[in-house]
Simulated scan of single mutants.
Amino acid sequence: METTEHINKPLEKVRDMIEDIRIAMMTTVDEQGNLVSRPMAALQVDEDGTIWFFTKRSSPKVDQIDNNDQRVNLSFASVSDADYVSVSGKAQEFNDQAKVDELWNPQAKAWFPEGKDDPELTLLKVHIDMAEYWSASDSRMIRFIQQANAAITGNPPKMGENEKIYN
C-alpha cells in the first residue's frame, strides 16, 4: 500500500525563504497602540508553519504579544536576492527545556550568558496564519535590464513570483 503525503508547496517555498533569510523584523503593538519592530533570528520553521525564536522573559514584546491577542507580523528581506516574506500570525511564549536544548546554538550565548539554563531564556513560537512572498527569479543584472527596459517602454517589468498563502 502506497501512501501519499500532501505537501503545501507554497508554504514549503515560504519556509525555504525564511530559513535562507533567517533575520526577521517582528512587529507588535505597544501599550500606546504604536507599532514596534525589532530584529529577531528565526531558529527553525516547522512543516506546519511554526517559526521558533529565543527571547527574554522580561522583554516588552512578551507583554505586548499577550496584550494584543497574540497577533504579530514578521518581515524577512534579502535585498541582494530580491526575496521578501511577510508573515501574519499568532505568537505564544513557550517554556520547554527539550525544545530549548534542540534549538540552542553558540550565538545565543551573547544574549543569554548563563546558556540554556539562563532564567531569562524563553521560546516564542509564531504560527503562520497568512504569508505573502515576493521572489525574483532572475539575477540582479537581468532585473536591472528589465527595469531599464520598463523605464524606456513604460511596461512594468515581470520581477518574479508573488503569492499569498493561508495556513
Rank of each mutant, 00 (worst) to 15 (best):
I152H: 13
V79C: 03
I145Y: 14
D46H: 01
D96P: 03
Q97H: 10
K9T: 10
L121Y: 02
P113W: 13
W52T: 04
W104A: 10
S78E: 13
Y84L: 09
A91P: 04
I18D: 04
D46N: 07
D16K: 15
R143H: 10
F144T: 11
V36N: 10
T50R: 08
Q147L: 10
K158Q: 15
M130F: 08
H127M: 11
S37D: 06
W134M: 14
V62Y: 01
K125V: 07
G154T: 09
Q147E: 10
P106A: 10
D101P: 05
G160W: 00
D118G: 09
H127G: 12
I165S: 07
M40E: 14
E102K: 06
E31R: 11
G160D: 12
E102N: 06
L121M: 05
T28F: 00
Q44F: 06
E31Y: 05
Q107G: 13
K9A: 02
E93T: 03
P113F: 12
K116C: 11
P60L: 02
N68E: 09
D30N: 15
G33T: 06
E2M: 03
S80W: 02
N167D: 11
I21C: 01
N68W: 07
G49C: 09
R71G: 03
R15H: 05
P10F: 06
